[in-house]
Amino acid sequence: MAVEVPVEKWTGRVGEVRLGGDGCKRVTIGGANTLPFLKFEGSIPNPPAIAMEVWDSEPSGWPAALTSAWGDVTSDPAAWARKAVEYGADIVMLRLQSARPGMGNTGGAEAGIVVDRVLSAIDLPLIVLGPGIPEKDNEVLVAASRAARGRRIALGNCEEKNYRTIAAVCISDGHVAIAKTPVDFNLAKQLNALLADIGVPSDSVIMDPDTAALGYGLEYSYSTIECLRLAALMGEAMCARPIISHAGPESRHQKESRATRGVPAAWGDPAERAVLWETLTATTCIHAGADLVVMCHPGAVELVKFAIGKLMG
C-alpha cells in the first residue's frame, strides 16, 4: 500500500520585513510560505531572528542568573548592546525603561541621546520599546524615531488604544511599527487592519500577539501564533505579518527563572534553570511560527541559535 506524501499546498505567504539600513547590517524576517521548518513543502527564505534585550538604565528586579551573566555592562546601554552583538544577537532591542515615572521619568531628549549612542555602538538593526504608558510612549518613541532616521528600526508598541502617533512617525521616518495585542487572534488581525487603514505599508509592520512564559499560559501564545500563521498561509492578508515574541522578557518574570531559595531541590541549579525555561519558551514560540524572538540570557540565545541552525538545515 502506498501513501501519497501529505504535503500541504498553502496559497498564502508571510510578508517580509527588512530592518536596518544606512550602510549597516540588514536583517529580513518573515517570507515563509509554509509552517516552521517544513522546507519539504515550501520556502523559508529567512531563519527566525534573535533580538537581545538591553535597557537604557541599570536593570532592577532582574534575576541573579541574568545580572551575573551580563556583568557590569548593564550600567551602560552602548556597552551592553556591543556585548549583545558579541553574544550573537541578530538585532538589539532597547527598552526605554527610564522613561517610566518611577524609574527616572526621562523624556524625549534623553531617549534621542540613548538611541543615538546605541546605534553608534553597533551596526545591527535596532528595536526600541517605550515604557508602555501612552503619553510617554508617544514622546520618547517620536524622539527615538528622529534619532534613528535612515537606520530603519522597529518601534513599539502600537496598541489598539494608542497607535496613531507611533504609526505616523514610522511612516514619515521609514521605520517599522510593532503592533501589540493581548493573546487573541482577532485583536491581532484588527490592529493590522487599523495600521493598514492609516497608511502603514504591509512591509513595515511586525505583530506581537503577546507571549506568556512556559508554565504561565505559553499554550495560549502557542495557539494564537499558530492560528495567525495558518491564517496567513491560507491567504488572510491581515495576518500575513511577521511575528515577534518576547520569550526572554516574559521568562525573566517567572518564578522558575528567579527563585534561588525556598524552592524544591528537584528544580536544579538556578543558573541552568533560568537558561532552560527561557530557551523552551522561545523555541515553543518559534515552532508555533514566531519570526523574531526577544531574549535575555546569553546561554539561552546560544541554545536557540543552535536549534534554529539545525532546523534550517
Partner: peptide, 9 residues
C-alpha cells in the same frame, strides 16, 4: 534536575 521540569511543564 534542570531540564526535566521544564520539559514536563
Amino acid at each position: 534536575k534542570d531540564s526535566l521540569l521544564p520539559l514536563l511543564v
